[in-house]
Design a protein around this nucleic acid. Structure first.
Lengths: 243, 243
DNA sequence: ACCTGAACACCGTTCAAGT
DNA sequence: ACCTGAACACCGTTCAAGT
């Protein structure tokens, strides 16, 4: 139903033409397809599994073929990261709420999106995200703070520090991930208990504070600790402004 | 001058014995030597260069030989990290100062030590440091806070969040490192200027806040930004306690 | 223009064989 | 007990050759 694209492409093939192997099954590689495929591998097997060879294999080709669409692995990972950041949906502009509430909400969404893609966050720790989607999020955060009366210098540095915190937490958080089939609610103790035992077994004379506070040291799940740290930063900024 | 260690080791060799190849030059491998060698490679070439093969080569042997002293690469890196943490010297206990001043000082020392060994900090992001030296630092921090009146739960979580922040900053900070031969004072602009240009070149209608605050976004060096974030965390905790 | 196989210089780890 | 060479199953990247 689409207009004829080019030449006589829509005529049937003469019967003696040998059909291409795997006729339609192999869509031509493009940068988008490459990034999407890499994200599929990332989600299924983690960032370490995202190798040029592994992604190429997923596309039924060799690693060398990828270099037609991407300069090198670093570029592919940068594109992957920015695509993931593109999944963060920003609240409608002009929503109600103080800058503090809005920034907090943005931070939570950012953290949730990064955490939903295995350990992608590691990419942002190793490079410096400047892709269009990363800029979109930065622009919004900076805009909200400045509009809310945060001095520009504090706002700019806060954006930097809060991003570092969120990325670091999203990455480190993947280490505490439970193996498949574990229920985070009921089986949490099975993971924390060995750590508790270890702390308790320490010599009290050398580690009095640690031994006395084993429960406090091992309490709280990933999300509680994330929010605790996020609120420390926000409270710190708020305190700075009031002066 | 030391007492005879074992057997007749101190007698001269009979002349017909074929001397061992490279007589004294090759001290026997031990875990300590392994860790020290790995740190030498780390300092000279960065964490990526610390491979089993590379470290083995430094010891004039093959990678397989290292597995007699270390279970695997992860264990070697954990040992490397803890040895680095061992370089942090803790202030005399009972020094004057509020908990806030003492914790701040500890954070600064921790950051300085990690930053002085290339990107070792990455090890702490990927594992969970529980070596003796890491425990020593944790014990001190927790002790200082609890003694200073910080509620145990807040102190424990603060320790966790502040450690994450310091490690993340120490790692990310190595990305902004200048190539050899650059003077951080005079050549800083050569590094920041391209970034400034990039921000300035963005479409103003889409990125009004970023374009309007290019100078604020690119001001400050690593240390200034590190301290800014550290103080945000400390101020946030202080604010929480006053309530 | 796009894709390919083969090669290069690397990885971590295992294992049978040596001393 | 400690060390070794060779092998296995991987890496990222380049390059000449193919369509």
């Amino acid at each position: 139903m689409t207009p004829h694209p080019a030449g006589s492409a829509e005529l049937p093939q003469p019967p003696w033409r040998t059909p291409r192997k795997k006729p339609q099954s192999r869509t031509p590689i493009s940068q988008d397809l490459l990034v999407e495929t890499a994200i599929r591998v990332l989600d299924a097997e983690g960032l370490d599994a995202v190798s040029m060879r592994r992604v190429a294999q997923e596309l039924d080709t060799g690693a060398a073929s990828l270099y037609a669409h991407v300069a090198n692995k670093k570029e592919l990972l940068d594109l992957v990261f920015d695509r993931v950041v593109g999944e963060i949906d920003l609240p409608e502009q002009g929503e109600p709420g103080t800058w503090r509430e809005q920034i907090r909400e943005l931070g939570i969404r950012m953290h949730a999106t990064l955490s939903s893609h295995a350990d992608v966050a590691r990419v942002a720790l190793a490079n410096i995200p400047l892709g269009p989607n990363a800029l979109r999020v930065s622009e919004r955060m900076l805009g909200v703070m400045v509009a809310g009366g945060v001095p520009a210098q504090a706002a700019a540095w806060f954006l930097d520090r809060m991003s570092l915190y969120i990325v670091a937490e999203a990455y480190e958080g993947t280490l505490w991930e439970m193996p498949e089939g574990f229920n985070p609610e009921t089986d949490r103790d099975a993971f924390v208990e060995p750590l508790r035992q270890y702390f308790r077994s320490l010599p009290v004379d050398q580690f009095p504070a640690l031994v006395a506070n084993v429960d406090e040291m091992t309490s709280g799940d990933k999300d509680e600790r994330f929010l605790f740290g996020l609120d420390l930063l926000l409270d710190g900024l708020a305190a700075r402004i009031r002066n």
